[in-house]
Simulated assay, not measured.
Amino acid sequence: MWTCGQLKQRAKYSLANKYWSALLASLIIWGITYGITWLLSIVSSTAMFSSLFPSLLNNSYSYGSYSYGSYYEVSQFFLRMLPTMILTVVMSFLPQFFAFHPLQVGELNWYSRNRETPARPGYQNLFCAFTRTSYWKVVGAMAYRYLFLFLWTLPALVPYALIFVIMAVAQTNASVAFLMPLLLLVVIGLIVLPIIASLRYVFIPWILADNPQIGYRRAMELSKIMTWGQKGHIFGLYWSFFPWYLAVLGATFLTCGFGAVSIIFLIPYLQATYAELYAQCRHNAIQSGQCSLEELGFASPANSQLPPSYPNA
């Protein structure tokens, strides 16, 4: 059984003399993601302003009352704004599926290859998901994972709706107020469901980084296999980085927000540790015969093993 300390020590080993290269790889992904988001926000703001400005000029306002136009004018205003609102929502989701998810897979590919070779991987690995044979399979698999995790969050929303209903009924009938503590316990219990689901399918982007053409069904199945009996340990590994996040939060507070940039310098350490976690769980699945190296895109059995010089391997 692995420990958090062992994975972190291996991550430091894999980053030895390659930390700045890893930071540059993450900065490339971050810069592209931020650039796309910034451009789309400009387009969305421009479309919103172009729809709103003519409406403001054509509306007659009455500052002495609460009436700012007839019902017809208000309805026409919202009808004119509706296409822009739909465009804004669509533009917030499309880049996530068609650009950010493949970029995430590429970044994970870089960190996986980084731990397997003494030399720095090429930065072309960051765009491995954008090939003709891999792109749509990666997009489809990541979209399916996104949809599946979203569906797991829906049960947790039901008690919230019931809480509002009980609060409304309690205004006239106080006898139902005793149900509130019970519903709060149900809410807390149902919050665990999406957490478990996210841990169960946490390795899907890593599996796609190894073999982008593996397909969403097999990727989900392998992720469940690799995380079977490991979810508590994986959650503990994530939680072990909490002091680092507190340090970033403290730096942000002390520097009036500028310290938030320090989170960028933590990314290589985080990703390298998660790469070690995936490699360990992948190794366990291969040793148990539940998947093969060839299925994960490897040509040599040695690629699945930890290098002999790794400490605590």
Results as ranks from 00 to 15, higher is better:
residue 5 G to R: 10
residue 12 K to R: 15
residue 15 L to C: 11
residue 15 L to T: 14
residue 18 K to A: 10
residue 20 W to I: 07
residue 23 L to M: 04
residue 24 L to C: 02
residue 24 L to V: 10
residue 25 A to R: 04
residue 27 L to N: 03
residue 31 G to K: 00
residue 32 I to N: 03
residue 35 G to R: 00
residue 36 I to M: 09
residue 41 S to E: 05
residue 41 S to R: 12
residue 41 S to D: 08
residue 42 I to G: 01
residue 43 V to S: 04
residue 44 S to R: 04
residue 45 S to W: 14
residue 54 P to S: 13
residue 57 L to I: 11
residue 58 N to S: 13
residue 63 Y to W: 15
residue 63 Y to T: 08
residue 64 G to V: 09
residue 67 S to N: 13
residue 68 Y to R: 10
residue 71 Y to S: 13
residue 73 E to M: 04
residue 74 V to M: 09
residue 75 S to G: 10
residue 75 S to R: 09
residue 78 F to E: 07
residue 82 L to Y: 15
residue 83 P to L: 13
residue 83 P to T: 13
residue 85 M to S: 09
residue 87 L to W: 08
residue 90 V to I: 15
residue 92 S to T: 07
residue 92 S to R: 02
residue 92 S to E: 06
residue 93 F to V: 14
residue 93 F to G: 03
residue 94 L to H: 05
residue 96 Q to N: 06
residue 97 F to Y: 15
residue 98 F to G: 11
residue 102 P to Y: 05
residue 106 G to M: 07
residue 107 E to Y: 06
residue 109 N to S: 13
residue 110 W to M: 07
residue 112 S to I: 08
residue 112 S to P: 00
residue 114 N to K: 00
residue 115 R to A: 15
residue 115 R to P: 01
residue 118 P to F: 00
residue 119 A to F: 05
residue 119 A to Y: 03
residue 120 R to N: 05
residue 122 G to I: 00
residue 125 N to Q: 15
residue 126 L to M: 02
residue 126 L to P: 03
residue 126 L to V: 04
residue 131 T to Q: 03
residue 131 T to N: 02
residue 135 Y to N: 10
residue 135 Y to R: 08
residue 139 V to Y: 12
residue 141 A to L: 12
residue 141 A to D: 11
residue 145 R to C: 02
residue 146 Y to E: 11
residue 151 L to S: 02
residue 151 L to Y: 06
residue 156 A to K: 01
residue 165 V to C: 04
residue 165 V to T: 09
residue 168 A to N: 07
residue 169 V to I: 15
residue 173 N to R: 08
residue 175 S to W: 02
residue 179 L to S: 04
residue 180 M to L: 15
residue 181 P to D: 02
residue 182 L to C: 01
residue 183 L to R: 05
residue 186 V to C: 12
residue 190 L to D: 10
residue 191 I to G: 00
residue 191 I to S: 03
residue 193 L to N: 02
residue 206 W to G: 03
residue 207 I to T: 12
residue 212 P to C: 12
residue 214 I to F: 04
residue 214 I to C: 09
residue 215 G to K: 09
residue 217 R to Q: 14
residue 217 R to G: 10
residue 218 R to A: 05
residue 222 L to G: 11
residue 224 K to M: 11
residue 225 I to A: 12
residue 227 T to R: 01
residue 230 Q to K: 13
residue 234 I to T: 14
residue 238 Y to M: 09
residue 239 W to M: 14
residue 242 F to N: 00
residue 246 L to F: 08
residue 250 G to Q: 01
residue 250 G to F: 08
residue 253 F to R: 10
residue 254 L to F: 12
residue 255 T to E: 09
residue 256 C to E: 05
residue 259 G to W: 09
residue 259 G to Q: 06
residue 260 A to F: 10
residue 264 I to F: 10
residue 266 L to R: 02
residue 269 Y to V: 07
residue 277 L to T: 11
residue 281 C to M: 14
residue 281 C to D: 11
residue 281 C to R: 15
residue 282 R to E: 13
residue 284 N to K: 06
residue 284 N to G: 03
residue 290 Q to R: 15
residue 291 C to F: 01
residue 293 L to Y: 05
residue 296 L to V: 13
residue 296 L to Y: 07
residue 297 G to E: 06
residue 301 P to K: 00
residue 303 N to C: 06
residue 307 P to L: 04
residue 308 P to W: 02
